[in-house]
Design a protein around this nucleic acid. Structure first.
Lengths: 114, 114
DNA sequence: TTCTATACTTAGAACTTCTATGTATTTTTG
DNA sequence: CAAAAATACATAGAAGTTCTAAGTATAGAA
């Protein structure tokens, strides 16, 4: 199985990021690694792709950030989900469920005709 | 439940159109009505949205078109899925399944932590 | 005869993400 | 110790997308 299509990646990026942040605070680089791992390499965000998305989410106040110095002395920008972000995530989940139902309905009918 | 997000609509448009055309030949206006019905009004393509997508799919040779005059005398441009389009639909289904697994995995973990 | 529904087209606006490039530090390897 | 690789973030501009809006045209209903 190959990489996923751009459209699907695009549609899933925000719900995925919000989901990850709803479990633990995290920072850009770690999110990229995490998503790669979870998806078995099928989703690999470029850093130039993810960071602008994080900035956008912060601007919309769905997440908030703060700088932290790690033990190694490395600077990391941590992101945390906000209440608004949690609500948004809930809505995104509902949407995803609905579209899945529509699509699986279509595909079931079709399969039965083949 | 409201209308779906643009991103999800965008990601699902091509698989949905190809699915519909894999069952029956159809034309733009009918596809719009059909999707509206199947989705209980949650997906309502504007005509200015759907037609360019059909043109794009035709240019990529995933579908082919021909004009037909209906009994009423009205001109309709019918679209038919091609072999290439069927392959594409298959790939899209695989992609959709994969992303669903990734996402539902994320959401399951999260739910169990709440 | 006027309005609504049917039917298609396309230019341009608006919005996205992705590529490419830049900066900087820490860790690993030779 | 020096070089290379990994870690970490930022952003301008390219490229691609869909959506809005406006236009054309005909059939049927009121």
């Amino acid at each position: 199985m190959e990489k996923l299509s751009k459209e699907l990646i695009g549609a899933s990026t925000i719900p995925i990021i919000l989901s990850i942040l709803s479990k633990n605070e995290s920072y850009g680089y770690e999110i990229i690694q995490n998503v790669k791992k979870i998806s078995n390499g099928k989703i690999e965000y470029g850093d130039g792709t993810l960071y602008p998305v994080l900035h956008k989410l912060e601007k919309k106040e769905l997440i908030a950030s703060y700088w932290k110095i790690s033990d190694s002395g490395r600077k990391r920008k941590y992101y945390k989900i906000s209440d608004k972000g949690k609500k948004e995530l809930f809505t995104e989940k509902e949407n995803w469920t609905v579209i899945n139902q529509i699509i699986s309905k279509l595909w079931k009918i079709e399969t039965s005709l083949i």
